[in-house]
């Protein structure tokens, strides 16, 4: 079966409840998700393929919507993420402060070399702004991260931030990628993939790991 993409990456959206993570995701994937068999596969957003540096990258984005308060559930997502969006809401000082906590969780639970960027969402709500842009930039600098202010409403920086994080993940996996390009059929990264289209109950279920 011909592959529609060269490599698959898993990105994770993190941040307090209500900062608009699901909105960002909806925007990016053009509201495409599987609502048909909700009870069997759940509501899950479709993956999206984008092209970076001539490489077709399939990105699968995990969202922790509604589960932020469950201490053990969210941790499940960390381990296999290759890129992480740390999202706060510019109209909520508290959500900004909590970035410190989310970032320290990432240090603790996510694999080494995971790529992160900081997102200040709801940038269209200027009249309710509690976190100045400069403050976001400063935090991003401290952590050595890129920073974007986004808005799902006005479609500001959505594509840019997703593409940027994908680029960063690509760079971090440059070595494997070069191998991938050198070989006719790419074994290394292909094995990382978790394809929705795989037949159910296929054998190579990855080891589940939670924390």
């Amino acid at each position: 079966m011909a592959k529609q993409y060269d490599v698959l990456f898993r990105l994770l959206l993190l941040g307090d409840s209500g900062v608009g993570k699901t909105c960002l995701l909806c925007r990016f994937t053009d509201n495409q998700f599987h609502p048909a068999h909700i009870s069997t596969i759940g509501v899950d957003f479709k993956m999206k393929t984008i092209e970076v540096d001539g490489i077709k990258v399939r990105i699968q984005i995990w969202d922790t919507a509604g589960q932020e308060r469950y201490q053990t559930i969210t941790k499940q997502y960390y381990r296999r993420a290759q890129g992480i969006f740390l999202v706060y809401d510019i109209s909520s000082e508290r959500s900004y402060q909590h970035i410190v906590k989310w970032a320290s969780d990432v240090d603790e639970y996510a694999p080494d070399g995971v790529q992160k960027i900081l997102i200040g969402n709801k940038a269209d709500e200027e009249h309710k702004r509690q976190v100045p842009k400069e403050q976001g930039l400063q935090l991003a600098r401290e952590y050595g991260m890129d920073f974007y202010e986004t808005s799902a409403c006005s479609n500001l920086n959505i594509k840019e931030s997703f593409t940027r994080l994908t680029e960063l993940v690509l760079q971090a996996h440059r070595k494997e990628l070069d191998e991938l390009r050198g070989l006719p059929c790419a074994p290394t990264l292909a094995r990382l993939e978790e394809d929705e289209q795989q037949p159910l109950g296929s054998e190579d279920t990855p080891k589940t790991c939670w924390c």
Binding site: C26, F45, Q67
Partner: peptide
């Protein structure tokens, strides 16, 4: 999800999973 759907009678779902479905539906 599969195990859950196969169960009949008394069962308690993992609420977090279903809350996520609800939010995704609502937002999506």
């Amino acid at each position: 999800r599969r195990a859950y759907n196969e169960c009949s009678n008394f069962k308690i779902p993992i609420l977090g999973v279903h809350l996520k479905d609800l939010i995704s539906l609502y937002e999506g």
